[in-house]
Amino acid sequence: MTQQKKTIASGLSEADAIERAKQGDAESFAGLYALHKRRVYSLCLRMTGNTAEAEDLTQEAFLQLYRKIVTFRGESAFSTWLHRLAVNVVLMRLRKKGLPEVSLEESLEPQQEDGPRKDIGARDNMLAGSIDRLNLERAIESLPPGYRIIFVLHDIEGYEHNEIAEMMGCSIGNSKSQLHKARMKLRDLLKPSRAERAAKRA
């Protein structure tokens, strides 16, 4: 994907802004920020579930970007490079807080959650048609951090398991099983009726 994108995105527009930013042109910095702030911020927000932290991380990601921009040589698309950098900033922060490792380490241990579902053998209502954006956003927000990160990276941001494994320092199988658990957990969260959920929240 990076290769294809490299040729596609090597056009003038963004490249110009990048070159100018390398020379310290303030408008170009601002332009690059304007281009990418929403996606970077959303990424941070979804991974942390916290606005203040997401803003802080967005700031940190762009500062790192601007410090490192002189080293950007167009090996990959700029947005790919930037988002990867942002993911690393978030992961670094979470690692400092010791959050995702806890749930990552347990992932290869045989666990209750790995086993068959409790409701095995009985069909229940299907999800189809019942999720809206807000429900889903909320459910994702309430996932345990380790699950949430993998889910955001794979199912929302579109990273592959091998990329996630590299960034998170885990195995590909580990990434797959974590993702699966995240989706199963989401299914649990989304399953009860609206009324039941409301009652549970209250």
């Binding site: 579930g49 916290n50 606005t51 809206d132 807000l134 909320r138 927000e141 929240r201």
Partner: peptide, 15 residues
């Protein structure tokens, strides 16, 4: 109306 609190965020949305 779909309204909920998540931490220090309150989200209100017409559904």
């Amino acid at each position: 109306v779909d309204a909920a609190q998540n931490g220090n965020r309150v989200e209100v949305r017409t559904h």
